[in-house]
Each structure stands twice: as structure tokens, then as C-alpha cells.
Simulated assay, not measured.
Amino acid sequence: MGDTSLWQSLMTQELNIPTLAEDIVSKSKQLDNLVSKSNSLVRASYKLTLQEQRLVLLAISKLDSRKIGSHPNPKHDQMKVRISAIDFAEVWGISPKKAYEELREASNELFERKITEIDGKKVSKMRWVSKSEYHDGEGWVSLTFSLDVLPFITLLRDKFTSYKLSMVSGLRSVYSIRLFELFAQFQDTGILRIHLEDLTNMLEAPYTRYTDMARRVIRPAVEELRLKSNLEIEWRAITEGRSVKTLEFKFKEAAQGKLDL
């Protein structure tokens, strides 16, 4: 027994295999990472798959904006983030095998994804990343955020939203994640009022009728947030004439605390 323990100890040291305790600490640190976005990015129009959303959020949480500084032309490597399949699996609670597949798929498509920002009559479009590399066989991806999107995720001093990565780690719907971010933006008041058309455009949801938005987007997202986030949520549709024009959400932290996922 003694020889076996010594062999295992030597193997762990030589291969630098983390212990269970180290794994837990590593995961805990990652889940404590902050995701910070400007409020305009939170409310911008874009559509990502769940895998792409997870990749973007994890990358933002790892981005060290202090290294970028206020220089108008930050170095290429200062905008670059490396995500391993192991990191991806730990944070999002999936198997390493599935993480490899999702990471490869997300990195392949993310370069083509755009963000549309509307400021009055001005409409601006930008890419999330200027470069995406997947290293097949090694199980990691490197993302380089575009210069256009960088001001929306770094050096944020006002009008921004922050939350811990752990607060969305259990969510399985892109709509739930986006709705959570809107709630986080209005956490001081606990009330979000938003035009139905604005919400539909933000999510780039493929529905034009309120009944479809309610059935396929809002109700499922609210239900998932109630089950998996530390939130109590009530919402209602506000009509003008015969049409639903505005949605009102009232939310607060649940007294019983977050459920184990």
C-alpha cells in the first residue's frame, strides 16, 4: 500500500495532475470571475448559440482589462484570451468530451457573429472577435476580441453591468442568460420595463407575435431563472389598445438562496 501511494504521489508531481482539492479551488475561482459589459452591449442586438454565448462569457470573465490600459492601440496579445476544454467543462458543468465538441463548434462560428448597436438613427455593426483559433488535438481555443467591441467590455467606469459567472453557469437557454443580464442591469430597482419590440430585436428572436414570444421565449426563460437562479420573478404584459406593447418584470433575491444544480 505504501509503495502504491508513493507511486501515485510521484506520478501526480511529474505530470502536474491537479488534486481534487485543487480542481475544486480552480473551478471556484473561475466561477467567481466577473462578467462585465457596458449597458449598451447588454441591450444590443445579437444572436449566439448557447455554446457561443458560453464561450464569449467565459472569455470576457478571463480578460484582464488592466493589461490593456487606456492606450488607443492595445497590443494584439492583450486582447487575446485562451480557453481550454477543461476550463469550459468545469465552468459549464459538462463532460470533457462534450466540452471539446462544443468549444470547437463555437469557435468555428463565432467569427461570423455580429453585434448591432442602435443609437437613435445610427446603426452600427461589429464583430465579437477579429480572430478565432481552435487547436485540434490540444483542446483549447484562442479568441482575439475586436477593437470595436473592446470598449464595451474593458475599462468600464460607469453605465455597465457586472455579475459573477457562477450566476449563469447553470442556465441552458440563451434567452435566460440575456434576460438575466437585463435584470442585473436593473438590480438596484428590481424592476425592468421594456418594449416588446425592443426585446424581440435584442434577442433577434424569430417571432413577430406576442403570443409566440411569451410561449417560446419569455415563459421558458423566466421559469428557468426561477428554478436555477437566486431570483423571484413576476411579470406582466402591458397593452395599448388590443396589442401588447410593453413587458414589466419585477424581481428580487429569493430568501431561500440559490438551489443546488
Rank of each mutant, 00 (worst) to 15 (best):
G139H: 09
N230L: 05
K98D: 10
V168G: 02
K125G: 07
W128P: 04
S142M: 13
S45P: 01
E14I: 10
L58F: 07
T189G: 01
Q78A: 03
T144C: 13
L147I: 10
T12M: 11
K245P: 00
S162T: 15
A214T: 03
L165G: 07
L192I: 09
Q30H: 07
T144N: 12
G2R: 06
E117F: 09
H71N: 09
N201A: 08
S70Y: 12
G137F: 02
T200L: 11
R127H: 09
G2T: 10
R219C: 01
T161P: 09
L261N: 14
L58V: 03
T239L: 11
L58G: 02
E52M: 13
V217Q: 06
R178L: 06
K98A: 12
L179H: 04
W92F: 14
I233T: 02
T19P: 03
G241Y: 06
R236N: 05
W7D: 11
I83S: 01
T208S: 15
L10I: 15
K67P: 00
M167S: 05
D198K: 15
E232A: 13
S26R: 12
Y163C: 07
E197K: 13
S95V: 01
L110Y: 05
A85K: 00
T49G: 15
E248H: 13
S28W: 01
E197W: 06
K98W: 01
D136F: 14
F251P: 11
N73P: 00
A184F: 05
D87G: 03
T19C: 04
L10Y: 07
K131Y: 12
A21P: 01
L171Q: 02
I194W: 11
T49L: 06
P72E: 11
I68T: 03
L192H: 04
K97R: 04
R193H: 09
E14G: 06
R66T: 14
F186R: 11
K252E: 12
D148M: 14
A21M: 03
E248S: 14
M79I: 15
V81L: 12
T12H: 10
